[in-house]
Write a protein that binds this DNA or RNA. Sequence first.
DNA 1: CTGTGTGAAGGAGTTCACAGCG
DNA 2: CGCTGTGAACTCCTTCACACAG
Lengths: 213, 213
Amino acid sequence: MPRRNAPSSIIRRLPVYLRILDNLIKKDVEIISSRTLSSQTGFTAEQIRKDLAFFGAFGTRGTGYNAVYLREKLLKIIGLDKETNVIVVGAGDMGKAFGRYNITKNPYIRVVGMFDVNPEEIGKEVEDLIIEKLDKIPEVIKKYNVRVAILTVPAREAQSVVDQLINEGITAILNFAPTKINVPDTVHVHNTDLTIDLQSLIYYTSTEEKTLI
Amino acid sequence: MPRRNAPSSIIRRLPVYLRILDNLIKKDVEIISSRTLSSQTGFTAEQIRKDLAFFGAFGTRGTGYNAVYLREKLLKIIGLDKETNVIVVGAGDMGKAFGRYNITKNPYIRVVGMFDVNPEEIGKEVEDLIIEKLDKIPEVIKKYNVRVAILTVPAREAQSVVDQLINEGITAILNFAPTKINVPDTVHVHNTDLTIDLQSLIYYTSTEEKTLI
DNA sequence: CTGTGTGAAGGAGTTCACAGCG
DNA sequence: CGCTGTGAACTCCTTCACACAG
């Protein structure tokens, strides 16, 4: 469907549109304009139209976008029209949080496995999952056709775990380990690093004080 | 110290440099080149030099950067030369994870309070913190001069909590609630949204399969 | 006359190529 | 001669302005 490689900046906004659409459809909204999407997302209306137009002309001039139709298009573009299974590697506090809290409430994505090295953690239940040893990963990947992994292991273990995961067929990694991980071009990584995020926020609090003086 | 408003893209890389420097200094490395930083961070050497040069000439031509000196400069630029206190609002799994796991190990940042609305959670201990009611926030903010909050409440509560926090003096928010929050220009927000991150990753796994066909 | 779709202009950040200094 | 520091070229995205369709 994409005419050429879509800019990652667009790709990161699509799920935002999808979420707004889901909410509005629940409220029986049928038609939605780029202006409405703009006020709910904070992106400009022009940008939203450009983003959507990148994948095709989904709207009706003078009217707006049909919410249900646009939602279906977005699902297809993102790849959420079929269920996606993911695994969580690293069953620390953070991993457990993802295992139960965030994802189970998401209609499109399902956590099908949770893994850790720590023998004390093995066998513990997190929601409907049982924490297993890392060497069970290949089995689960095969059974559920998993391509996406959430990585919440300590920094020093990250690279070796990543190497294993890639070897076993993972092609996308959501990395919460506070370190750079090396992957081949075929694998996509998104890094989220609390320390980096916090420290860069602190920059703004301190410069604000400076400029006020 | 910044000559003009620093681009946020630079600001987000500074903590990465800092982390590498900390690691290298522990190994008694004294001089470090932009090339070394490049291989450890994945950013290009030119970019790293530009980033650092934005704040001043910290290196020595022909040699490189003095690790300890550069670290001190970075601490000062980011605002980590003095201890920064933060609070966590929302003591769900995610909030608890941040309360104990990630931040207590960070030498520059200290979590000084953890808050929730749920009466069942109040009084529970997380590491050396006791979960308190939201109305205790002003007290803690005053006592510890807090400017930064980590927000891990459900989406529907986010905006009202944010309004309170800003009212009480918070100027920077690390937002984990899966929703857009509205703040005045004086307040900085960084959004981290697991669902958005996962869904955009999934885009790449599905397009990869398409292009292989 | 409303709201989408889009070429053109503009802006922000990155890469290049090299000057400058130890 | 090595590695930093930096103007200039370039690339990518965003904003603007308007044509176009209902």
